[in-house]
Design a protein around this nucleic acid. Structure first.
Lengths: 243, 243
DNA sequence: ACTATAATACTTGTATACAAGTATACTCGT
DNA sequence: ACGAGTATACTTGTATACAAGTATTATAGT
């Protein structure tokens, strides 16, 4: 039984989470990081044993992950789907889709309040960089986009966000951890891009907005490659372990 | 205890559904139809007693409904949010958003297969009209859009569809039942519009597509008004019952 | 050696039991 | 009569138990 005790998901983010949520977050991280390979079938009983909890929270977690398209609930067991490069592009399609929609709504209203909040978050991100806190940086990055999306108070857009957020969060978290110390260029580019985003919102300039989204997309492409490489490396490491 | 035995959701659509799904479908219908008023707090225990099942499937159902934004899971009890006019517009925002996205993808590929499937569904709808089967008509209507959306094989767009579909289905179902026999004009307009949609896809004509979406939107506006009226009537009827 | 059938060891879905926490109501003291 | 504090009747979250169904394995017959 493989019951490792080191968790991938930051425990401080789970302060008021139920066991089910914890398991969901942890499993999500393990799937996205490639630690649990695609194609694996997960059994409720085994997971319950592994995490030392009953089947109830496990079932809950599996339902959540299946909603996020990370696993497929079948007759016997849950088959891990995982994130291929295609799926990461697709999730960013969705973000692009909803953020452009949100932007069109935003520009109709007063944006000073949102801009203020976003600026604050940006400063938090700066501090996170200063203290080399990759997790905090990822958290704030996600919060940045969440703030934009929630600002228009659109229940179904929020719903979509709620469903894509966890995967996005885990993905960004992993990718930030991976090269937070190495690639300072990336970080400053990300910061610049977020500033541009704020500019677009405050000036209500569609051109800048599109430019910002494009840059973000390019960044993500890089992230995808990185994650891909890391997964390759992980599976190679596993291969060697077996030998 | 209000345990009525007449179900709103067609039982034949639940052939292979679990108890949890059944409860979810039924509760969804009761909420959207206005039978369960907004603001009501639902208790797991009471629901379990009412539907003569245990809390497990009830919990499952409530999770589903909370994902669909129909209820809010709070500390004590689940508060019914329901569908206001605003929310119905919002759900159609989402459909518009994803269907335009899908269209852009579709026109890049060969559409003959999809067009074939859609034509078949359209003929099914015609039969449903012939036999005055509102439920079947609603089912095929939803299937029509599902077919379009699934055709591009985009996991996250499919995910969004999966999350909005149930509410959409219930809404269309109720609205069709309400005036399937009265308003033949509406039906022929809906059919015409679906034909237009197929034309747009087969000819890959963006103009026609937009036109079709607009008409559909107008139809919906009508439906919203109808549902609204019906809810008003229902609540009035309840008032009178109490007296 | 191979196929068909039966036994077994899994799987999920539902019901029930229990623990911890929260709101309501009631009682006691003033 | 009224307020503080306790008792009680709820609530959810988790664990466990059980039933029904499915894949696998083993066994028996040819």
């Amino acid at each position: 039984m493989n019951d490792t005790n080191d968790f991938l998901y930051p425990e401080k983010w789970l302060s008021k989470a139920s066991t089910g949520e914890r398991v969901a977050c942890e499993l999500r991280m393990r799937i996205i990081s490639g630690l649990i390979e695609s194609g694996t079938t997960l059994s409720e009983n085994k997971l319950a044993a592994e995490y030392h909890v009953s089947r109830s929270p496990i079932r809950e977690a599996l339902k959540v992950l299946s909603n996020e398209n990370l696993i497929r609930l079948e007759r016997m067991g849950a088959v891990v789907v995982g994130l291929t490069e295609k799926e990461i592009e697709e999730i960013y399609d969705v973000r692009l889709l909803i953020e452009t929609f949100v932007f069109e709504r935003l520009v109709k209203n007063d944006t000073t309040q949102v801009v203020r909040e976003l600026t604050k978050i940006l400063e938090m991100m700066q501090i996170a960089i200063k203290y080399k806190d990759a997790d905090e940086f990822a958290l704030q990055d996600v919060l940045f986009h969440e703030t934009i999306i929630r600002s228009i108070d659109h229940s179904y857009i929020t719903m979509i966000w709620n469903n894509t957020k966890p995967v996005m969060e885990s993905f960004i978290l992993l990718s930030m951890r991976m090269h937070f110390n190495e690639k300072y260029d990336d970080l400053s580019r990300i910061m610049k891009n977020h500033e541009l985003y704020i500019d677009a919102i405050s000036s209500k300039n569609r051109e800048i907005m599109i430019q910002s989204l494009h840059q973000n997309f390019d960044d993500v492409q890089g992230k995808v490659d990185d994650l891909w490489m890391s997964q390759q490396m992980l599976s190679k490491a596993r291969e060697q372990e077996k030998e």
